[in-house]
Deep mutational scan, measured.
Amino acid sequence: MAAGGDHGSPDSYRSPLASRYASPEMCFVFSDRYKFRTWRQLWLWLAEAEQTLGLPITDEQIQEMKSNLENIDFKMAAEEEKRLRHDVMAHVHTFGHCCPKAAGIIHLGATSCYVGDNTDLIILRNALDLLLPKLARVISRLADFAKERASLPTLGFTHFQPAQLTTVGKRCCLWIQDLCMDLQNLKRVRDDLRFRGVKGTTGTQASFLQLFEGDDHKVEQLDKMVTEKAGFKRAFIITGQTYTRKVDIEVLSVLASLGASVHKICTDIRLLANLKEMEEPFEKQQIGSSAMPYKRNPMRSERCCSLARHLMTLVMDPLQTASVQWFERTLDDSANRRICLAEAFLTADTILNTLQNISEGLVVYPKVIERRIRQELPFMATENIIMAMVKAGGSRQDCHEKIRVLSQQAASVVKQEGGDNDLIERIQVDAYFSPIHSQLDHLLDPSSFTGRASQQVQRFLEEEVYPLLKPYESVMKVKAELCL
């Protein structure tokens, strides 16, 4: 049975990233139509530049190519590739079939990587351009969430054990800070992308030097003109047959890092959902379990974690691919890159769409948070109580021993009897502590235990987050809708 299948058929496997999760716009960027249309555009740009620099290419040939950029006979191309065992030459023939007058000058002087690699770089750039505003929107939604809850005390956790208090907004800023680093890295790697350009079979530009009869300047002009037509500021000066596969490492490393950030955020949300302090959106008709109707599973956060793990592992592909590119190139890269580049971007696209949807509907339960604080705060307040007693004339050592005994009794009630923490009640009825009984409410005010959390939130948002989001103001209103 021949390899390949009808990918629109229910009898043929289709990647869930495309069929179930990723956005239509990201799927289109990695589609065959987008790819092969870009090949034709690159052939047109090459012909236009070659004509401008004096090669015998007519206006009629150029116009014929322009008129057929979208006229792609995919069936013919597939048949040609089956016959020739070469995808680029299959599309040269297919393009030439609908451009008979231009057929002889299509791909003039070029090698397969002229269309293959340059198209990949265009796709990487455009895919990054799709991700950047999506990530900015996630940051914006979380920034709104953090600002609104900047002063809401909550129990902090280290080692997932109760620690000092923080605020809900401050905790959210930990998430935002990681995503801001990801946004900066995505922008950097996007701006650092260079075009492969017009380089020939081993990167020496020998074929173009021959076409222009040894004119170095025209060869350099050709490279520059096509690079500018493709919208790049610069091209690699040095290439082998391909652009260095280190570029793929750079791009997928940034995406993998984004995956790590999203995994951490969504894990926190899942843990908070278990504590009943916070939940992701839950639709009115949504079913959490087929057997347990009360369940409210954090399905979206779980999906993000599941896909983020996949995204983090994909960076190993370009690392290994770059390491086995012998001399000017081997074909070890080809099949692998067809999979890992598309999957990385479709996965990143999915987790950003999902995280935006989550961040637009996060639900906080202040009463649950308050109750958990009441359970733990008495123990945390013991040092403040000791200091207040010393100020009232008591002995630190005597007070410490009193607190120690009462704390152990209260802990026994919590752990052995399943009761509430009654340390404060014990202190309130103990005559030894009568000098500070009137101060206990103040000493137990949760806001006095959150330090500068709310001020940190305000400063972080104003100095770091809002300036970073400013270039994306025009796209901030787009909502994230999930079908599944």
Rank of each mutant, 00 (worst) to 15 (best):
R85W: 09
L258W: 15
C304R: 01
E50Y: 04
L377K: 01
Q184A: 14
E343I: 05
Y365N: 14
M76V: 15
H217S: 12
R85G: 01
L174I: 12
C399M: 06
E279L: 05
I358Y: 05
F157A: 11
W43I: 01
A77S: 14
A260K: 03
V198P: 08
G214D: 12
M181W: 09
V429K: 09
R85L: 11
T94F: 07
C98I: 13
S67K: 14
R141F: 13
T313V: 10
V88T: 10
S323Q: 04
A260I: 00
P133L: 15
D117P: 00
R83I: 12
P133S: 15
T227A: 15
A335M: 00
S253R: 05
G214Q: 12
R329C: 02
S359H: 13
T58H: 14
F460K: 00
G197H: 03
P153N: 05
F30L: 15
V254Q: 09
P293G: 07
C180V: 10
A163H: 00
L53Q: 09
A322M: 14
Q325R: 02
I122R: 01
T204Y: 03
M89D: 00
S12L: 11
V226R: 01
N118H: 07
K402G: 05
C113E: 08
E401G: 12
D398H: 10
S23F: 08
G104H: 11
R329S: 02
R337F: 02
Y466W: 15
Q205C: 13
G393S: 06
S334K: 04
S9I: 15
V198Y: 05
D422E: 08
A163D: 02
L482A: 14
D317V: 06
Q210A: 08
I358W: 04
P153T: 06
P10L: 15
V247W: 11
Q241Y: 00
L352P: 01
N126S: 14
L209Q: 14
S412E: 14
H86F: 00
Y21D: 00
Q161E: 04
L271H: 10
N357A: 09
E462R: 10
I105L: 11
M278S: 04
T313Q: 10
T119E: 08
R125G: 08
C340D: 05
E280A: 04
G393H: 07
I287L: 08
D333N: 01
I106L: 07
L314F: 14
K367T: 02
Q428P: 02
F208L: 15
V198S: 07
P435I: 07
L183T: 14
H159A: 00
R194M: 07
I369F: 03
P24W: 11
A146L: 01
H442C: 13
L132D: 14
S289V: 01
A230C: 06
V405D: 13
L469M: 11
